[in-house]
Lab assay of single mutants.
Amino acid sequence: MQRVNMIMAESPGLITICLLGYLLSAECTVFLDHENANKILNRPKRYNSGKLEEFVQGNLERECMEEKCSFEEAREVFENTERTTEFWKQYVDGDQCESNPCLNGGSCKDDINSYECWCPFGFEGKNCELDVTCNIKNGRCEQFCKNSADNKVVCSCTEGYRLAENQKSCEPAVPFPCGRVSVSQTSKLTRAETVFPDVDYVNSTEAETILDNITQSTQSFNDFTRVVGGEDAKPGQFPWQVVLNGKVDAFCGGSIVNEKWIVTAAHCVETGVKITVVAGEHNIEETEHTEQKRNVIRIIPHHNYNAAINKYNHDIALLELDEPLVLNSYVTPICIADKEYTNIFLKFGSGYVSGWGRVFHKGRSALVLQYLRVPLVDRATCLRSTKFTIYNNMFCAGFHEGGRDSCQGDSGGPHVTEVEGTSFLTGIISWGEECAMKGKYGIYTKVSRYVNWIKEKTKLT
């Protein structure tokens, strides 16, 4: 034993070699072989497995989906700052455009905790909710729209109204504003409101030439003092309507412009014939205590009207009353817009006519005020429907199939267009061939041609 100890002390290297040989010859039971080890760690190889990531292109799944990435790591994937920024906006807080917040056709661009709407022409605001041009839906104005110097929408209202708090709607500024039905039992019968379409306001006024200088022999019209197929109006439903009495009662109609003036057809009036105007009328054979009678003290036909040349060209006249009318729910003026808007309103496509005229061709006159909704007829169809001249200051309205029309005794009465609950004068009943005849239409004086003249002559002093 002493000898062994001496050998170990003198030859430590020998001992180490012996131990190493023993270990190498022993069977290893701690580690699995290569094949079995792979069965336990069965993990798919990654895209760049075996390579240094710093030297390969980034992978979106590896960089940002398996674990949260930084902007720089995302930049490695896209290799483009702009594309990385677009991805980053949604990656950080989701897609803010998912709810489609942009209105009126706006395009949404996502941002971090926010979004941006790219608005089409005519709109602005956070969600493109603000109209900035009158060309689109009248700028959301209830009545009139004008573009300011910086191309912003400025709404306005006709006389007797003021802008509401929203700067879009119009509200009454006087007790009985024009064009409004205020009798409670008839307010439910107000005709369907007309909503502004998209309009090209630059070209809204037709490029028409008034044929002022045409000389033409007097034409022989049949029954051209021209509501057939209409309905009984309720008291106060058309408070701007008046009836004219002269040699015979209810020979023509008219509309209240203001307390002192009536507008009617020029062919209705004769110099030297006494005319009485009755406002607030409903049943011409009954006294309903809503009527107001006034005498006409002055007749002003349009300066281009000449019955000797043509009885229905420039067929418009103004009547001055001896005493002002007292405005109330049964006696209310009709609204008159400017030339541009009167023309736009007419193009809405349908209007209402009213009167006490004959209820059928050569038949009896109506006792109760009649009204009828009539569609506008395109000019080409209008011209083809008659052998008589249709001037540019006239328009056609009615039904091709016949059966409904204005008729004798309705002449001078109103053709009105309702705009968001307020009625505007767009025409004056003038003439036609018979009444409600198939293929024939009622012919009306186009008020847009005469609004400046009306307003100039009827100013209240």
Rank of each mutant, 00 (worst) to 15 (best):
T190E: 10
K168V: 08
A192M: 13
Y305R: 10
F238A: 04
V277R: 00
F87I: 15
L367S: 12
L130E: 14
I344Y: 12
C141P: 01
Y312A: 06
A279W: 00
E433W: 05
S406D: 14
D212R: 11
L327P: 04
G427A: 02
C69V: 03
E53Y: 05
C108S: 00
T461P: 14
A308T: 10
L52W: 06
V242P: 00
L23V: 10
I344F: 12
K457Q: 08
P12I: 14
A308L: 11
T186H: 11
G229T: 05
K293R: 14
N306T: 03
V243H: 06
K260Y: 07
S107V: 10
V174Q: 08
F78E: 15
Y341H: 05
L189S: 11
C435D: 04
F121N: 08
K362N: 13
D93L: 05
C108K: 01
F78Q: 15
T194F: 13
F348K: 08
Y371P: 05
E433I: 05
V4L: 12
F251N: 07
R449Y: 14
L318I: 04
D93P: 05
D93F: 04
V353W: 03
L460C: 12
V374T: 06
R162H: 10
H302C: 02
A307I: 09
K362D: 14
R180T: 04
T445N: 04
S350G: 09
N295I: 06
N283V: 09
D322N: 09
Y391K: 14
D33Y: 04
S365N: 13
H415P: 00
E208F: 06
E165T: 13
Q90E: 07
G402W: 14
R83L: 11
Q370S: 12
D405T: 15
I316K: 00
F221G: 07
K311R: 13
G402K: 14
G402C: 07
N42S: 11
L23A: 05
T458M: 04
S182T: 12
I214A: 10
H400D: 14
K168R: 12
I112S: 07
T342I: 02
P175D: 06
I136M: 10
M8G: 13
I428M: 06
F121I: 06
G403A: 08
C252G: 00
F224M: 13
G236T: 05
T461N: 15
F78S: 15
D150T: 10
Q370P: 03
L318H: 01
K274P: 11
V92M: 13
V92H: 09
R75T: 15
N295M: 08
E61R: 15
A164S: 07
V368W: 04
T186L: 06
V248D: 07
H267A: 04
N343A: 07
A337D: 00
A366E: 14
K446T: 03
D110R: 06
F31P: 04
T81G: 14
W261S: 01
L52K: 15
T186I: 13
N100L: 06
G125K: 00
G357N: 07
T461R: 09
L425R: 00
I284C: 04
Q96D: 08
D212Y: 11
R358I: 06
Q408D: 12
E129C: 02
F345N: 00
S411Y: 11
K89V: 08
A250T: 09
